Amino acid sequence: MSTTRNPEALASARRDPDPISLVRGVSPVLEVPFTDTSEVDYAGFDRVVRHVLGAGVTSVMFPGFASEFHKLSDDERQRLVGVLLEHTRDRPDVAAILAVQDHATTLAITHARQLVADGADLINLLPPYFLAPTPAAVRAHVRAVLDAVAPVPVVLQYAPHQTGTSLDAGTIAALARDHPNLALVKVESTPPGAFIAALRAQEPALSAVVGYAGVQLPDAVRRGAVGLQPGCSATEVYVEIWRRFEAGEPEGATELHRRLLPYISYWMLETELIIAAEKLISVRRGLFESSHCRMPAHELDTEEVAMIDRFLAEFADYLPPVDI
């Protein structure tokens, strides 16, 4: 839905608490269910949104790699964003982080402005990577989008494993000095800890959330991560891990993460693998009907399906069947 409201007007109307504080903790990336015939299951997505927002989180991100953003049409994406914003636009206790992954700078600017106008609380910006743009071109792209939506806060996504784009901490800090709305960095390097610490050591000090399913979460927390952005099928497990960290129970948090690690470390061997695994988990829990992924996709084999069933059995206390 189009609107003439500009970023400055929207920012002045931001609710309290501010959206940056709402991103702390667990901020799941929402998945997109499809039917067996590869159509978007909008009702299923609505159930995903309602379930995740009811699991004790204060922000969600959409769309990301876990959402199969690269397999959605512009119309589908816009409609899905509308479904999400219906649940977040009027709530002071949750923030919607909406993603801009456009490669062309002019398209990224237009897209980011429209998302802000529609009700995004923060913008997640994935720098361009197709055909290996130069570092100067990447910096120019990021600066242009930051300018376009200022003062609305932006999360800069650093995902070298998925994109090959390389940004060092000093470069990101230089961007933040000129653009105060560069509020957070989503770190998905492997491992992420050293980069998170390097961001904190910059001037200005930069806060980070960790992605990559939280495989290295305990180390990331020790080095200063203020939150994490996993997929959404097992949100309750991540919420409990984070609760223990915040409650001053690092041993308990690390122990629960240790139980989770054999599963997520395997699933994160391939992005398409963890997408397929998370969808089957959600189907098993009753969130939507089909675990279909649009092709090309990873086809789970018998052992991988058995692994998911073991996972659900082990974490049954945290992941009951969904009743929405």
Rank of each mutant, 00 (worst) to 15 (best):
Y238H: 14
V210D: 08
L217K: 04
D16I: 10
S2P: 04
A213I: 05
I324N: 08
V60G: 03
S207G: 00
P127G: 01
H87M: 01
D168I: 09
H298P: 08
G119W: 12
E39S: 12
T271M: 13
P153T: 06
Q216D: 15
T88P: 07
V154F: 00
D178T: 03
S291V: 03
L53G: 04
P153C: 03
I324E: 10
D178A: 08
E240L: 11
H87C: 05
H87V: 04
G214W: 14
S38T: 02
S59H: 12
N181R: 00
D309W: 12
A13F: 10
E188L: 06
G224T: 00
A208E: 06
A169K: 00
D147L: 04
L206Q: 12
R200T: 05
V209N: 01
L156T: 01
G54H: 11
G211N: 02
E272M: 11
L217I: 06
K279M: 09
A136L: 12
H161I: 11
A137K: 08
L167C: 02
G224H: 03
R223K: 01
G252K: 13
T163W: 13
E251Y: 09
P153I: 11
V116P: 08
E240N: 06
L287I: 13
P296Q: 00
G248S: 02
N124L: 15
V283C: 05
D74C: 02
A140E: 15
R223F: 14
D93W: 13
F45A: 01
A313K: 12
P28F: 11
G44E: 12
I241Q: 07
L85Y: 13
A253N: 05
L312V: 07
L84Q: 11
E270S: 13
L300E: 05
E249I: 05
T302D: 15
I97Q: 12
A117G: 15
A208S: 10
V100N: 03
R244L: 14
L156A: 00
L319E: 11
G25M: 12
L228A: 06
N6K: 10
A169N: 01
R47G: 02
S2H: 13
G193M: 01
A306Y: 03
A169H: 02
L261R: 07
H292F: 05
M61V: 14
L312E: 08
D46L: 03
V94S: 08
V187S: 01
V52C: 07
Y266S: 06
K186L: 13
W267K: 06
T110G: 12
S73P: 07
L84S: 09
A194V: 07
T254C: 11
L260P: 11
Q216H: 15
I172Y: 03
D317W: 09
P230G: 02
R15L: 15
P135D: 04
T4P: 03
T190K: 13
S290C: 01
W267N: 04
S59K: 11
E76F: 02
S38V: 06
A173P: 08
R50F: 07
F195D: 06
E251R: 10
E31Q: 12
L53W: 13
A234P: 00
F311L: 13
E39D: 15
F65K: 04
T171D: 08
I274N: 14
A208D: 04
R244W: 12
L182V: 02
H179K: 00
P33C: 10
T235G: 09
L280D: 02
F34Q: 07
G227H: 10
S67E: 09
